[in-house]
């Protein structure tokens, strides 16, 4: 039986940049523990060992390593009537990205981009004609960061551990539901509208500039 209540909120997203942690996650068993099982639901060492057909001792060693670097957390300790003390572990996020460009995820797309991708996004926009000058880069970065922060903040309104039915949705459905709900919430949010307008102004300015240069 899995716990009904997860006391710590699961993040939608986590970027792993520490090389030590990335190396740790490249191990086959640990990769399976995190990306195949613990991103989906909390599980005990015994459940993991049964699911993976491995010795509990081996799984426990891997789980302890993952816990020590903060990739997984202990969410519940349940004492069974027979006296076994089951510890339920869960990944800290539903999706992990290794570094900036590489990614290992439970699904392909995400609604909330991580902060570390702001620079990459700004540089990537140049491929679409939005070539931000070096002097304006910092300003554009601040605006985009604000936009992302606001979106993340709004997504936390509904993405709480207490919304059990939502948390139990299949990942792809949850992603779609999240996208639609976030879209609605953001359209109602004045703060977001203000930042978005500023951001759109930057995009429009640089697109116009590129067009005039080409002409």
């Amino acid at each position: 039986m899995n716990p009904k209540l997860s006391k710590k909120a699961i993040k939608e997203f986590e970027v792993v940049t520490n090389i030590k942690v990335i190396k740790l996650l490249l191990d086959g068993t640990r990769k399976d523990i995190v990306f195949k099982y613990l991103v989906n639901k909390p599980m005990t060492v015994k459940q993991l060992s049964v699911a993976m057909n491995k010795k509990p001792g081996t799984v426990l060693h891997h789980v302890q390593k993952l816990k020590s670097v903060g990739i997984i957390v202990l969410v519940e300790t349940r004492e069974t009537p027979r006296g076994i003390v089951e510890r339920y572990y869960r990944a800290i996020a539903r999706e992990f990205r290794l570094g900036i460009s590489e990614r290992m995820s439970a699904y392909d797309e995400s609604t909330v981009p991580p902060k570390d991708r702001v620079n990459a996004t700004l540089l990537g926009l140049s491929t679409l004609g939005v070539v931000i000058t070096e002097s304006e880069f910092k300003h554009a970065r601040t605006i985009l960061q604000k936009l992302i922060d606001r979106e993340t903040e709004m997504s936390l309104v509904y993405n709480t551990p207490k919304n059990h039915a939502y948390q139990r949705l299949p990942q792809s459905t949850r992603r779609d539901v999240s996208q639609r709900m976030l879209q609605f919430l953001l359209s109602q949010d004045e703060v977001h509208q203000k930042i978005l307008s500023e951001w759109n102004g930057i995009i429009a300015y640089y697109l116009k500039k590129t067009s005039s240069e080409l002409a």
């Binding site: 039986m1 969410v75 519940e76 300790t77 349940r78 004492e79 003390v85 089951e86 510890r87």
Partner: peptide
């Protein structure tokens, strides 16, 4: 294990 779980507030007892 029980006491650390109580300190971390992750402890529950399965009565089923």
């Amino acid at each position: 294990m029980i006491l650390t779980a109580k300190v971390d507030a992750t402890y529950t007892q399965d009565n089923g």
